[in-house]
Simulated assay, not measured.
Amino acid sequence: MKRWSILLLSLLPLWANALEVGERLAPWTLLDQFDEAYSLDSQARVLLVARSMEAAKLVNAALKDKPKDYLQERQGVFVADIQRMPALIAKMFAVPAMRDYPYRVMLDRDGRVAPRYVAAEDKVLWLQLQDGRLVARQEYATAEQLAAALEQARP
Rank of each mutant, 00 (worst) to 15 (best):
L12N: 08
N17A: 06
M98C: 06
K2V: 11
R112F: 04
P67Q: 12
R3T: 09
L47S: 04
F78W: 14
L150F: 09
T142L: 07
L63K: 01
K91N: 14
L107Q: 04
T29P: 07
L134Y: 04
Q138M: 03
E144M: 01
A94W: 08
K64L: 11
Q152F: 06
R112E: 12
W28I: 11
A143I: 05
D65Y: 07
L146A: 02
R109F: 08
Q33T: 07
E36L: 12
Q72A: 15
A149S: 08
A55E: 00
S5F: 11
L150N: 08
L30M: 08
L25T: 11
G132A: 02
L14Q: 00
D65C: 05
G132T: 10
S10M: 10
A153D: 13
V95D: 11
A141L: 07
E151M: 07
Y117S: 05
M85Y: 14
L88V: 14
F93I: 13
A50W: 03
R51C: 00
A56Y: 01
D69S: 12
P115W: 10
A16D: 01
L150D: 04
K123R: 15
Q75M: 02
K66Y: 01
L40S: 09
Q33Y: 09
V77Y: 12
A56E: 05
L127G: 02
W15M: 10
E151Q: 13
V113M: 08
D41T: 10
Y117Q: 08
E54A: 11
P96H: 03
E151G: 06
